[in-house]
């Protein structure tokens, strides 16, 4: 359980994070979304004790991170995959962490296998790793202590589509076994498939939060047909407000069932009918974070 409560972080006169509150429950994946410089990293650094909040608190299972007896055994953290000594091998990086955590060497091999770095890549210097391999190594380090909470900053950065798919499965499985996952991203599509809950931050403030369904509720239905004008008229006749959707589609302000019934009643041909999904979320994300993108503080 992660609780962030009225967290504010100021650097001199600059406010990086302002009154941010949200919580993540066990068994869920929370996506922490926002454009670059919105305050995601500052929030996460405050959560894991690398930065001291100006006011407010951030706790894990009711305790401040610094008060956890063996933090790495309870919380797996990946804040910056490139923050590794370029002269050490992947295995050496994990061996050092394993010594601090008090987990045995076999666990190092286990997580190396888990993230797909077993064998030859484990013996290569991190300086020769691609960004994707560093992310995998960072994930391995986060998983090393067998924690029940994961805090990951932009973990999909540098991963190829296959790697992103793999990571989703890994995080989903972790949450399904009762773990708590908080991961940040500036790209919605990287995490919308895996997150149960979304927290959108913009300019240091929470712009929206809730489950995907909640955030999308009232986003309407997308319909498409050979004659857009006929569709508009049929829906309006049934008392459903319409707006032009992406490309030649129509966005109807009603549930798919009501829209289908209205269109069927009017005898209009359809080629597509579905809840306004992905692009609805994308649009929401852009509308929530788009304003003031120019004057945000660097994270």
């Amino acid at each position: 359980m992660i609780s962030i409560d009225h967290l504010t972080k100021r650097y001199g006169a600059q406010v990086a994070v302002s009154d941010v509150s949200f919580s993540c429950s066990p068994g869920t994946v929370t996506g922490f979304l926002g454009p670059n410089g919105a305050g995601k990293s500052t929030t996460l650094r405050s959560l894991v004790g690398l930065a001291t909040p100006t006011s407010g608190t951030a706790t894990i299972a009711g305790r401040r991170y610094a008060d956890l007896p063996n933090a790495g055994r309870e919380v797996g953290v990946l804040l910056d995959a490139s923050a590794q000594h370029s002269g050490r091998t992947g295995r050496e990086v994990l061996t050092l962490a394993a010594m601090v955590l008090g987990v045995g060497r076999p666990r190092v091999d286990e997580v190396l296998g888990l993230v797909g770095l077993a064998g030859k890549p484990a013996g290569k210097r991190v300086g020769n790793y691609s960004l994707g391999m560093r992310q995998r190594l960072g994930l391995a380090a986060a998983l090393l202590g067998d924690p029940h909470v994961l805090v990951l900053d932009e973990p999909a950065n540098g991963l190829d589509p296959e790697g992103i798919f793999w990571m989703r499965g890994l995080l989903r499985g972790f949450a399904d076994r009762g773990g708590t996952v908080l991961l940040s991203s500036h790209l919605l599509h990287e995490i919308e498939a895996v997150a149960d809950q979304l927290v959108v931050i913009s300019g240091g403030r929470i712009a929206a939060q809730g489950s995907k369904q909640e955030l999308l509720a009232g986003r309407g239905t997308l319909v498409r047909g050979p004659d857009r004008e006929l569709l508009h008229r049929a829906l309006q006749a049934a008392g459903i407000a319409t707006t032009p959707g992406p490309e030649d589609a129509v966005l109807a302000d009603a549930e798919p069932l009501a829209v289908g019934q209205a269109v069927a009643a009017a005898g209009v041909v359809l080629t597509e009918l579905r809840a306004a999904g992905g692009e609805g979320l994308e649009e929401l994300f852009r509308s929530l974070t788009g304003t003031g993108a120019g004057q945000e503080v660097a994270a």
């Binding site: 359980m1 066990p26 068994g27 299972a61 009711g62 956890l68 007896p69 063996n70 055994r73 309870e74 601090v100 955590l101 008090g102 067998d146 924690p147 029940h148 909470v149 972790f174 076994r177 009762g178 773990g179 708590t180």
Partner: peptide, 16 residues
């Protein structure tokens, strides 16, 4: 169980 533990209650793990 092989972690992650279901509850928030963490077992007492010795600090390094």
């Amino acid at each position: 169980t092989a972690a992650p533990a279901t509850a928030d209650r963490t077992p007492a793990i010795a600090p390094p």
